[in-house]
């Protein structure tokens, strides 16, 4: 086991602090750039309607027992009949159509490009910059001991198994900043403007290949199998119980 490493103060002044400051500045810059590039996009009527249909169908599923059986059956027919039900997806209109539409719409493609570019370019650049200038530094030490499992998180870029795990390498410091600055951004850029990298990455994963028609048919299936059991008759007894308590 190695002795305690002594971290040079210039490392703090020239690695640790500059890295954090640069990350913050890049976040702010990116916010403004994305604000500049943000284009107002008129939502597509069909997509909006599909979303609303799904919300309403979900409401029907959740509250089905609160409306009389006749009303429920009428609604179910409205949503899921095979001719023109709102949730019924014609066979010909499969995912291909959706994908084709996505790629044929240049606006959508460029919008996605812009979003991704504003995220990927600064990220790769900063990562390259950190790698080039600061690789291999031990930049900080956390004041408590940690188990070996944290080594890959905190000592990315240092291939030494003998260094105490509580030391943080510069590259790991970069990653910690990348994912941990959200609170700070929400402070300086306002609540809703926080640039959240982690969230964006998730969005990116889900953004491609999303198919609303699949949602529709899934919702249709679950509406088809609901057993409607009117809850209101039970309420009479419950009301009686309530009143009995109230009167006596």
């Amino acid at each position: 086991m190695a002795e305690d490493l002594v971290l040079d103060t210039p490392i703090r002044d020239w690695v640790l602090i500059p890295l954090s400051v640069v990350m913050v500045l890049i976040g702010v810059l990116r916010y403004f750039v994305s604000k500049l590039m943000r284009s107002f996009q008129v939502p597509d009527a069909k997509i909006v309607k599909e979303g609303q249909v799904i919300v309403r169908a979900r409401n029907l599923r959740a509250g089905a027992n609160f409306i009389p059986p006749k009303s429920f059956r009428a609604r179910r027919f409205y949503f899921s009949n095979e001719e023109n039900g709102l949730l019924h997806v014609p066979k010909g209109q499969s995912q291909n159509a959706q994908a084709a539409q996505m790629f044929s719409d240049p606006n959508m493609a460029t919008d996605m490009m812009k979003k991704n570019l504003s995220m990927i370019i600064p990220q790769t650049l900063t990562f390259a910059w950190v790698n080039f200038f600061f690789s291999g530094f031990v930049a900080a030490k956390i004041p408590f001991p940690l188990t070996q499992r944290f080594r890959s998180m905190l000592q990315n870029g240092i291939d030494l198994s003998t260094v105490n795990v509580s030391y943080v390498s510069s590259r790991s410091w970069y990653f910690l900043n990348l994912f941990g600055l959200r609170g700070l951004f929400s402070l300086i850029l306002g609540e809703e403007n926080a640039v959240d990298d982690a969230q964006r990455m998730m969005q990116m994963g889900g953004g491609f290949g999303f198919d609303p028609t699949k949602n529709l048919s899934a919702e249709k299936d679950s509406i088809d199998i609901i057993q409607h059991e009117w809850a209101l008759p039970k309420f009479e007894q419950r009301a009686e119980a309530v009143l009995r308590k109230l009167v006596h």
Binding site: P68, L232, P233, F235, E236, R238, A239, V242, L246
Partner: peptide, 16 residues
């Protein structure tokens, strides 16, 4: 009859 049931549910939901 349905109306009575819904009045009953209102009673239940408002605690009478």
């Amino acid at each position: 009859q349905a109306a009575k049931k819904y009045y009953a549910s209102t009673i239940d939901l408002t605690g009478g």
